[in-house]
Design a protein around this nucleic acid. Sequence first.
RNA 1: GGCCCCAUCGUCUAGCCUGGUCUAGGACACCUCCCUUUCACGGAGGUAACGAGGGUUCGAAUCCCUCUGGGGUCACCA
Length: 565
Amino acid sequence: MPTDTTIPPVTRFAPSPSGHLHVGGARTALFCWAFAKGRGGKFLIRIEDTDQKRSSDAASVGFLKDLDWLGIRWDEGPEYTAPDGTVVGGGPNGSYFQSERLEIYARYTEKLLVEGKAYEAWDSQDELEAMRKEAAARKEAFRYRFRGEVTPDQRARYIAEGRVPVVRFRSPQAAVTINDEVLGDATLPAGEVDDFVIRKKDGFPTYHFAVVVDDELMGVTHVLRAQEHFTNTAKHILLQDALGFRRPTYGHLSIIKNPDDSKMSKRDKDKVLRKAVKEKALTAPPAGTVTAEEWSRWIGDDNVQLDLDGAIRLAEALKVTLPEINVDDFRRSGYLPEVICNFLALNGWSPGHDIEKFDNAFLKERFSLDRVMKTPAKFDRVKLLAFNTDAITGMPPDDFARRCHAHAVQYRPDYLAKLGDANFALLMKACQERSKTLDDPFRSNGFLLVADEALAFSDDKNVRKALGIGAAPADGSKTGLDHLRTLRGVLAGLPEWTQPALEGAANAYAVEHAQGKIGSVAQPLRIGVSGGTVSPPIWDTLVLVGRDSALRRIDRCVQWAEGLK
RNA sequence: GGCCCCAUCGUCUAGCCUGGUCUAGGACACCUCCCUUUCACGGAGGUAACGAGGGUUCGAAUCCCUCUGGGGUCACCA
């Protein structure tokens, strides 16, 4: 069925309540948004909270913040006030929380009941289980079918027994053809769909029923959702026909996988931690990570997830890196929202013509269902990082500084407190071309934060080599440590502590004492003030650390290095 | 297991619908070299794929069949 381009499409993103937006969900939302907005249509959000076992408090719509951060805004849906004060959401189609639409579903359930297209079923869980087992024994797939009329007498008896019925849909035994704009048409043979439940014992509709009713009432024309729903679609089509509803156009999106081919999942963080715990054979939580109670609950059940803060603390203690799974994880790691969108879109869609870099405006303009991939994509974080690096190094310096500052306010307040405005600006200038994320200027320069007395010098191969420890030059020439010692005095006598002054002095020194090889004096200096062999350009680093601190640190370094011999 | 879907470099993909221009293109990763005060950036090269087998055709990555492999789904979860 070709897409009717004359009517502005309406799409929706309909997740179950969640505090965090998962990468896969983000892509679905992005595609829904791009498809509708690129065609003058509407994009709406609906919360599928018909499972009472899942909490649905305010935190359940935390993912709206992530969506907004990505630059995806909805025309209708839950209300949300963006950081810039804009109020998003609302709309004429009633509550966008399914749990608040119960009377609507009841009306349609009643209609089907009256028309004989649905019926009450009184089976208990145990009885259903027995039927399933029986079918399994016969090596058949279990499909629930109408089990005969229940007489008023029987009904009264069931009620007296305290049974509560569910309502099941009397599925027509007909082949169902699903028209899918991504996968193409597929026909399920007659009898594949059983008499599934549409109203649960607790009175709530099942997902299948609520979805069909809401999509009709909200005027949804295109349903773009994860491929796991593909088979469900037959149920929805049958229901739409029975209710006299319009059939939306479908498009089923492939899942996103981890590099190891497993499905990308919220549990991946815990998986990494469990593996580390097992490898280290830990039997108790490291101090300051999680409580003993949380630990035992978590260890005892693979389905239990640690809360984010606890997981982060544990990861630090175990020295493992948690995989980024949620949009917010990537935000925290310093990825740019426009890059996330770009990359996400590339996982499953391509504009062709070897175009890879584009923004949401382009995506909106060019997105079409016929170019959506049918195959699952592996989420390649390395390529994402490369994209992020390109975006960051290509950014106007002022933008970089501004966005890093915003990032620091959120996630690195300690740097803001420690560095003054001038030094913050200098750090930005020194770091942009070597940063892959907005977080890199902070994450890789921890030495700026520590007290001089607390700076740890790392005893590794590169440090030893640069300082000439353990392997003094055979020709008797000076070691890095010798240079550092002498240079300390030179620098201490400098009239001013600026990059040109420092560079000039060090260069003059190198020409005179190190065959002009600036590297042999720069590295020892770097180790002296940063504790290691990696830092921003040395002259900037020296200024950032400051004269007094730099000299103190060099003294400590010399002392430390002498102790090594 | 039943049913449905899918299959191009290690990865994301272009090409497939409308067979020849594909000795299969791009990007990330990887390797080599260059640049370099560290790290990173950058520059120049390079390795690398049509899952297998049958057809159809003058000609197939492109069309058909089989096999193999992968995914999804079979809940009073969504």
